[in-house]
Structure formats: structure tokens, C-alpha cells
Simulated assay, not measured.
Amino acid sequence: MPRQLPLPLLPREAVEIEPIPDSSNAVARTWLGDPTSWPAGRLALHGPEGSGKSALLAQAARRLGLRRLSGPALRGVPEGAPTALDDADCAAEEPALFHLINACAAGGHLLLMAGREPPSRWEAHLPDLASRLRATAAAPLGQPTDHLLRALLARHFARRQLRVEPAVQDWLLARLPREAAALAEAAARLDRAALADGGGVTRALARVCLAGLIDGSGEGAPEEDDDSVAGSGVASASMGTLL
């Protein structure tokens, strides 16, 4: 029997932001709300980068008592246990993923996975692994909506106790990549820059500290005063209900 190796636990700091209910993740939240509906106790979340897969997986892992593992570090012959596997489509070793699926099924344990594509499209050279992936229920996540991005950016600022005028937030949302990681990075940079500058967050400050992150395609247009309302292309919306 192949020897078992220590399991690669996913660092808690990798995903700490709670997911925000949104139409883009409604289907996935429905599936996650009823684990008894998962065929063979197995479910895979899938969606584009920045759609919130990791946040949903982490929240479900805490609620359901699943150990959290990382696909890129998955090796050996994992023991069966209730498991949440992030980046499962990037598993370091196909046999390890195959053994994990089998071990969870044999023990009647829940297995929640996340990847960019549906599991039926994950690269699998082992025929038996490909068969099990095709039989895995898939819950899609769409691109984040304007509402979700606005609420997420506001949450980052609130957690840092960073006051940012709505007009500046509009300006940022019109230029930042539509990804959760980009919003988190922007908030961290602005927080450091505002502390160093000793002032508030303005568009002028954002242009400097977010260089390389924001879209500069509109920078040639005449600028309004930072206190004026900036046209963002993002419809005004309240933060909505956050988890």
C-alpha cells in the first residue's frame, strides 16, 4: 500500500473575506445550503478568477466542519475525512486527487472542491479519475455584479476604518479589475498611502499608489475636483446585506 503523506492544509489567511450574497453566486449558495443534495456527497464550485469560489469554500468548510486542503500541494494517498479542496483543478498529483475522492466516498464524507472550470473539463489522464469528475455535481459562479464589487470594496475600507467618499469609490470601481483580490490589494495600498500622507483618500492619491493596478485608459479626460461626483459607469447601489 502506498505510504500516506502529511496533508497540505490551506493557510487560513489565504481566504478570510466572507462571501457576499449576490445573483452571481446564488446557484452555488443554494447547493451549499443543502449538502444532502450532493450526489455521492461531492460538489465542485467553478467560476472565473475573482468570482468568490475560495470565499464560499472557506465559509462552507467552517460551517460544515471540513478540513481545508490546497490542490497544488495535494500529494500521496490522503486519508478520508470531510474535506474542502481549493484549486482542485490544479492538483499536484492526479493519483492523490483520485485517492481523495475515493477515500471520501468510501467513508461517506463530504467533499467540496473548487476550480475555474466544471470538473468534467479538468485535465485528467487517469480514466477512473475522469469518470469520477464527470459524475461530480457542479455549481457555477458568474462574474461579480456591480452590487457585489461595490459592497466588497466598501467592506474592505470599513474594516480598515478608512473613510473614502462615494465619488472616489465610484472612480476606483470604474478602473480597478473586477476581481476580489484586486479590490483587497487596492484597499491595502490606499490604507498605507493615506497613513503615510496624513490625509484622506483622493483620486490623486489613488493614481499614485495604485499605479499598475488601475486602468488608466480614461486618464486623458479632464479631471473634476476630487470632491465632485465622478462618473463611474457603475450604477449607484447600497451595500446590501453582507454576511
Rank of each mutant, 00 (worst) to 15 (best):
M1I: 06
M1V: 05
R3H: 08
Q4I: 03
L5W: 08
L7A: 09
V15R: 00
E16P: 00
P19E: 01
P21T: 00
D22L: 00
D22H: 02
R29T: 01
T30P: 00
D34G: 07
S37A: 15
W38L: 12
P39N: 14
P39M: 15
G41I: 09
G41L: 14
R42C: 08
K53M: 15
K53S: 12
L57H: 09
Q59K: 06
A60E: 06
R63S: 15
L64I: 06
G65C: 03
R67K: 09
R67D: 05
G71C: 12
L74H: 11
L74D: 11
G76P: 05
P78G: 12
P78I: 12
G80W: 13
G80F: 11
P82A: 15
T83E: 07
L85E: 10
D86A: 08
E93L: 04
E94F: 04
A96I: 09
A96Q: 06
L97E: 14
L100F: 08
I101Q: 10
C104L: 07
L112D: 05
M113T: 06
R116S: 12
S120P: 02
A124Y: 06
L129Y: 04
S131P: 05
R134V: 00
A137Y: 03
A139R: 05
Q143S: 06
T145M: 00
D146P: 04
L148D: 00
L153A: 09
R155N: 06
R155S: 10
R160V: 01
Q161Y: 01
P166T: 02
V168E: 08
W171Y: 05
L172R: 06
L173Q: 14
P177N: 13
P177Q: 13
R178H: 03
A184E: 15
A184W: 09
A186T: 05
A186Y: 11
A188K: 04
R189E: 05
L190I: 08
R192P: 00
L195I: 12
D197G: 02
G198I: 09
G198A: 05
G198T: 08
G199V: 07
L205N: 04
L205P: 06
C209Q: 02
L210Q: 01
A211T: 08
G212L: 02
L213A: 06
I214W: 09
D215C: 01
D215F: 02
E219P: 03
G220A: 15
G220M: 11
A221Y: 01
P222L: 15
E224F: 04
E224V: 08
E224Y: 00
D225V: 07
D226E: 14
S228M: 12
V229Y: 06
V229C: 10
G233V: 12
V234A: 12
A235F: 13
A237R: 14
A237C: 12
S238A: 14
S238D: 15
T241A: 10
